[in-house]
């Protein structure tokens, strides 16, 4: 060999991170993570029932339904506020962000025509996928952490630092609340890997970034809709989003890990299979973009 080419030095993680982090969509996604708590605070403070100091916690208590009265507790203090932000964010926003950061990894390179130059350099195909996936997941998890950090900071300024109040009864002081929020954040990050996995498979299949992201978001939403259909009965426990809300178990005084263990496992299984499928597909793919 005439030159000093080393396959394991191609496309280092740090370089890929620099290539992605300067993109506008990264800034927009992170901006949304900060905007969400700001908007909610503004709505609460400026809204028609502005009564922030009393921390009115009655909420939409639904007599006899046993509904999860997390939202009513949002103004209780920053811990509760952050929980509600996680509840709001994990439904659609974070799903989209996770799908975005994994779904446009390869497809956007294809659409910029840069993919062929990276592969011909050559960056080994599997190395390219793994580095891109690692960076995509890093950016996704960063968005989640930014949401939590921004919510904690904004919530602390807006509503104070009262202990975390569980809708089940009981409360957690700061250190315990921080631990609980950390567990919840970790769990939400894990369950969102399903969206990342779908998006990552699609990004290898298609050359259209939005197609990959949209497909992943659509599959997650269809799964959520099916999960709401009582008629499906126990079949629903096999849906990938079935355990998406299992993190509320963390609000119990003693954490019941059963559902979360199952939800996290399902998500990791789905993620592994989807990524494995993506790798096998990309190994043989003719790069025509």
């Amino acid at each position: 060999m005439m030159n000093n080419y080393k396959a394991n030095r191609t496309l280092p993680y740090r370089i890929e991170l620099i290539r992605q982090i300067k993109r506008r969509r990264t800034a927009v996604a992170y901006g949304l993570m900060v905007a969400l708590p700001l908007i909610v605070v503004a709505a609460v403070k400026l809204g028609p029932q502005s009564n922030s100091s009393s921390g009115s916690g009655s909420g939409d208590s639904n007599f006899g339904s046993g509904s999860l009265n997390l939202i009513g507790l949002a103004t209780n203090g920053t811990w509760n506020f952050t929980l509600v932000m996680l509840l709001f964010g994990s439904g659609f926003l974070l799903t989209t962000v996770f799908a975005l950061f994994s779904g446009d990894t390869v497809a956007s390179e294809a659409s910029w025509s840069t993919l062929r130059y990276l592969l011909a350099t050559p960056v080994p195909r599997r190395r390219l996928l793994m580095i891109k996936l690692a960076v995509g997941i890093t950016l996704s998890l960063t968005a989640l952490v930014i949401l939590v950090a921004a919510s904690l900071a904004i919530g602390a300024i807006a509503f104070g630092t009262a202990p975390l109040t569980s809708p089940l009864g009981g409360s957690f002081a700061s250190s315990e609340a921080l631990a609980r929020i950390a567990i919840i954040t970790g769990y939400i990050g894990t369950t969102l890997l399903f969206a990342s996995g779908v998006a990552f498979l699609m990004t290898v299949v298609t050359d259209v970034p939005l197609g990959a992201v949209g497909t992943a978001v659509m599959i997650v939403i269809v799964s959520q809709i099916l999960d709401a259909l009582e008629a499906l009965g126990d079949l629903r426990q096999w849906l990938p989003s079935h355990y998406a809300r299992a993190w509320t178990d963390v609000l119990s005084p003693t954490i019941d890990w059963t559902s979360m263990a199952r939800g996290a496992s399902f998500s990791i299984i789905a993620f592994t299979l989807l990524v494995g499928w993506a790798v096998l597909r990309f190994d043989k793919k003719d790069v025509l973009s």
């Binding site: 999860l68 609000l251 059963t258």
Partner: peptide, 13 residues
């Protein structure tokens, strides 16, 4: 019931 509050629609838990 105290172990879980997600159980509205999920008797399994």
């Amino acid at each position: 019931a105290s172990g879980t509050i997600v159980s509205n629609n999920n008797r399994n838990q």
